[in-house]
Amino acid sequence: MDSTPHGAAVTAAGFGVKGPRGWAFRNIGLNAAPGSLIVVQGPSGSGRTCLLLALTGRMKSAAGTAEVGGLPLPKKRAAVRSVTALAHVPGVAELDPALTVGEHLRERALLQGRFGGSLRALLRPRHERRAEARALVDAALTAAGLDLESLPKGIRTSVRDLERLEALRLSVALALIGGPRLLAVDDTDLKLSGDERARAWAMLRGLAEAGTTVLAVCSEPPQDGEGVVLVRTGGRREPDVPKDAPGDSPATTDAAVGTVGGNSGDSENPADSADAAAGKTSDDPTARKTGEDPANSQHDNQDRTEDEEGAADALAEAGRA
């Protein structure tokens, strides 16, 4: 019996993607075992979607190293794409609001039957292929927690009539039909209420516990950070230090934009990080005296803008404006 875990291990060191006008993200490091829940947290424009696309082989990296399931990036991008799936990625893998839930499921099952299996599987009797497709769809819907009977018109419900959490579950179910080793979900908590957010994270955690590695992009990590591999994008860049400064070692201008920890408590408060990245200081007079030079603050703001532009350019090159 094959004891190899279904999920893909994900590792990265100094990983980065660069667009025409700057870095989308850089110096990302992580080490996640198969079946992990990897949470990418960061503000809009910090390169978090670019990181998702790069780790699934959809975007070419420009710095560092990374492996997904033992497949090196960017050398084995095609192989990485074959073992990963995207869900809820606007402009890349998104639902058509004009189609019904059933039409989406039938289309995805048809594509899986035509291109996701072997030639021998295509030669089997039609009733066997239909039964297998139904089994795949049912298993994916169960894993994503989408109950068709609870929808307004059942399987005939249009995507435009779905609640946001139901649309997220459908997108995840469609991705799971292909049996990916790594499932990547973008904008996980976008416009979800607190209760909906908790249910979404419970779904993704359940998928990870069942063996599939999950990479989820969000603005806020789950409250229960136990067992979560947290990666932050858009962190503060260290100020430049002259190489000949006495008593100081030279600082790199490519300071880490992303950090990784075991849970959400491993790093500083995101609001504090945002204030620091913008060069803000506290109202304490002592803090103002010892704060950064305004020129350095202006430099940090410029670097942050360049990173956001780089992320936008990299996404545009990948087919998403």
Rank of each mutant, 00 (worst) to 15 (best):
G22Y: 07
L86S: 01
A208F: 06
P20T: 10
F115C: 11
M203W: 03
G310Q: 06
L86V: 06
A316Q: 13
D189P: 07
L141D: 02
A173T: 05
G178E: 00
E163K: 15
D248A: 15
S44K: 05
A251G: 14
G154K: 06
G35E: 00
A312Y: 11
A62Y: 04
R130P: 00
P180E: 00
P97D: 14
P285L: 06
P5G: 12
I155V: 15
A251Y: 12
D224G: 01
D275L: 15
F15T: 11
G261V: 01
D195C: 04
R199K: 10
H88Q: 08
R48Q: 11
A202M: 08
S36A: 11
M59L: 15
G206D: 03
G19C: 05
D272W: 12
P125V: 01
R237G: 12
L71N: 03
Q41S: 14
P221W: 00
V92R: 09
K153T: 07
L110P: 11
G113S: 14
G16Y: 04
R236Q: 10
A287N: 13
R77Q: 15
P246R: 12
G235V: 07
A295T: 11
S273G: 11
D266M: 05
D244W: 07
T253Q: 01
A184H: 05
P5L: 10
R164I: 04
Q298I: 08
I155R: 14
L176P: 02
P72R: 01
K153H: 05
R320Q: 15
G42D: 02
V228W: 03
E107R: 04
R320C: 12
L151K: 06
S297I: 12
R120P: 10
L174V: 12
V17D: 08
K289R: 13
G291Y: 01
L51W: 06
A131G: 12
S36R: 09
T157E: 06
A109P: 13
G265R: 13
D313K: 01
P239Y: 03
L207T: 02
R48Y: 03
R126G: 08
G235N: 15
V101T: 10
D244C: 07
L183C: 02
L30I: 01
F25T: 04
